[in-house]
Design a binder for these strands. Structure first.
Length: 223
DNA sequence: AAACCTGCCAACCGCGATGGT
DNA sequence: TACCATCGCGGTTGGCAGGTT
């Protein structure tokens, strides 16, 4: 709890990276807060964990995103919204931070997602580049439990639907046929089917539509 | 050449969840 | 049950690099 403010911040040096890598090599991942106590690395636990998970871990891909990865992210985002850790979990070698950054800097533009101005009179407001972005989340976070993977009941979730502009919007009024169509489109598209792991763990449409629970519930367990 | 602008991404922050005592 | 340490998530920021004026 008490991670004081005497810890170093900012970009990591090569020496710091080596210290952290050596530490993980000896002690394994976890117990991040002990690093500063047992080594001369003056980084707090959170910083160490983030550096390892997002950069130093051998599981992290450093090359550019491929077309296939981008397509997969787009599809997963349609289903999951800004659940970056869940999305990243389905994109081998990519971290939630990588996925989030790539979405915000590349994929939004690729999809032509821009914030819908509520009215033109607002155009005189001071512009910042962040103002261009929207809450593009197809399932607004306010409608979801804050920490979905840890929630046992997921009431209040809504499905996604494609809007006139091609972006996906939240809706809870979709009929069953539309649900089947949408689910099958995403689950059994060539991109997803090409992913062995996802394919083997993908449910059937009957499973999707079965029961009185939310038809998307299974995603939170499968992804 | 210098100032300014923009894009990008690594890292930070705040918060909630979890697990141990 | 309460408290504390730790972990993990999503949003946001800071700063560098390259482009433009």
């Amino acid at each position: 709890m008490m991670e004081g403010n005497h810890y170093k911040k900012g970009l990591w040096t090569v020496e710091e990276d080596k210290m952290l890598t050596d530490y993980v090599g000896i002690h394994g991942e976890g117990r991040w807060s002990r690093i500063a106590k047992t080594t001369s690395l003056k980084r707090n636990g959170k910083s160490c964990r983030l550096r390892w998970m997002n950069y130093l871990s051998p599981n992290v891909k450093r090359e550019s995103f491929s077309e296939e990865e981008e397509d997969l992210i787009i599809r997963l985002h349609t289903l999951l919204g800004n659940r970056w850790s869940l999305i990243a979990g389905r994109v081998p070698g990519r971290t939630d931070n990588q996925v989030k950054n790539h979405w915000n800097t590349h994929l939004k533009k690729k999809l032509g997602i821009v914030k819908a101005k509520s009215n033109e009179s607002n155009s005189s407001l001071k512009h910042t580049h962040k103002d261009d972005e929207i809450g593009e989340d197809p399932v607004p976070l306010r409608d979801l439990p804050s920490k979905r993977p840890r929630c046992s009941n997921d009431s209040g979730i809504v499905e996604t639907d494609q809007g006139e502009d091609g972006s996906f919007q939240a809706t809870n009024t979709m009929d069953s046929n539309s649900k089947v169509h949408l689910m099958s489109e995403y689950l059994f598209s060539p991109v997803l089917v090409s992913n062995d792991d996802l394919f083997t763990s993908a449910p059937t449409l009957m499973e999707l539509m079965d029961g009185d629970g939310n038809p998307l519930d299974m995603f939170w367990h499968q992804f």
